[in-house]
């Protein structure tokens, strides 16, 4: 039961990184100096999906609170600066995207675009550092609380933050090659190609830093699985690059989406059966079972999730289906 909920938590957070990831990637690409119509076209390429993307985060935190209350408190409070930065980023992007085109003036719209860029940057870096913080262990004391927040400031956390940032930008560019009209997509392809290379290098660098980090080596319960998944991540990025070269943006997007989801799986599998590994007091480490809510709560939520989950995923799929394909001038322009 705990495992099922842990998997569901992973599914929703990974789903958020995949879907929110291209929002932030597109957001960051607003800074690349395209003209105003192209910037607006990029925002409307996310258009109908935007509101449905970010709520995966809300759902993930809901599951975290409902099914893993102890983890929720310690993870969020214990990674306070990273979570707060990511949260500020999420807020800036959500407001920026939705309000950007409401004022008519050019300067106001440019200002909102800067808000989106800064927000996307914060969100990508913040979630990267949160994932790194899990993987390198936290100073969890015997009383069950994480001591301080300085444990986050390590080279590995910085490298992971940058790697997630590079992943998100490459993912966003790949999304645009899939979604914009063919002419625009052709213009963007070289850029996406370069960004995928950057992302591969950044992920490789983070992996190397991890191998040299004592804390990561100690915290990893299944290092072999971790290394394997990291290699899979690099392979996904290379596959995306090849697919893009062969003008298969759909395949490329599937590959970058896999690359965005894999870090969550990597953290979950590498630390299993723990979710918070203590760096100061090995016996204080928190297992998934200990972190989970008690039986009656999980059963109640389980009864609810069985009918609900297909509905949630179904309506999201419906949104993707209705607005599938390249943007073609048939949907209204709103963002």
């Amino acid at each position: 039961m705990e495992l099922a909920w842990y998997a569901l938590l992973g599914l929703f957070f990974a789903g958020y990184l995949v879907l929110g990831g291209y929002d932030y990637g597109v957001g960051l690409l607003l800074a690349r100096g395209a003209d105003a119509p192209r910037r607006r076209a990029a925002l409307n390429a996310i258009g109908p999906f935007f509101l449905g993307n970010e709520v995966w985060l809300v759902a993930a935190v809901g599951i975290l609170f409902g099914a893993f209350p102890v983890l929720e408190g310690e993870l969020l409070a214990g990674s306070y600066p990273a979570v707060a930065a990511a949260l500020a980023g999420v807020i800036l992007v959500t407001a920026g995207v939705q309000l950007r085109s409401r004022p008519g003036g050019r300067s106001a719209r440019t200002a909102w675009e800067r808000v989106i860029v800064v927000g996307s940057l914060l969100a990508a870096l913040g979630w990267g550092v949160v994932l790194a913080g899990l993987l390198q262990g936290v100073p969890l004391r015997a009383d069950g609380h994480v001591a301080g927040v300085t444990h986050l400031f390590t080279p590995f956390a910085a490298a992971t933050g940058l790697a997630v940032l590079a992943l998100v930008v490459a993912h966003g560019a790949t999304f645009l090659t899939l979604r914009l009209p063919t002419v625009e997509s052709d213009r963007l392809r070289p850029l996406a190609h370069r960004l995928l290379l950057t992302a591969t290098v950044a992920v490789g660098a983070a992996a190397v830093v991890a191998l040299f980090s004592d804390r990561v080596r100690t915290a990893a319960q299944r290092p072999a699985a971790g290394v394997l998944l990291a290699m899979l991540l690099v392979a996904a990025l290379l596959a995306a690059r090849v697919a893009l070269g062969r003008r298969r943006p759909g395949v490329a997007f599937a590959a970058t989406a896999t690359a965005l989801a894999l870090p969550v799986l990597l953290v979950g599998v590498t630390l299993w059966p723990y979710v918070l590994v203590s760096t100061v007091e090995p016996s204080a480490s928190l297992t998934v079972t200990d972190a989970a809510a008690s039986g009656p709560t999980l059963r109640l939520l389980g009864w609810l999730a069985v009918p609900l989950l297909p509905a949630l995923l179904g309506f999201q799929a419906m949104c993707l289906w209705i607005f599938r394909g390249r943007t073609d001038g048939r949907a209204p322009v709103y963002w």
């Binding site: 809901g62 809510a293 939520l301 609810l304």
Partner: peptide, 10 residues
Amino acid sequence: GAPLAIETLV
């Protein structure tokens, strides 16, 4: 946590 989780999902 239960009603809050339900709220976010439902």
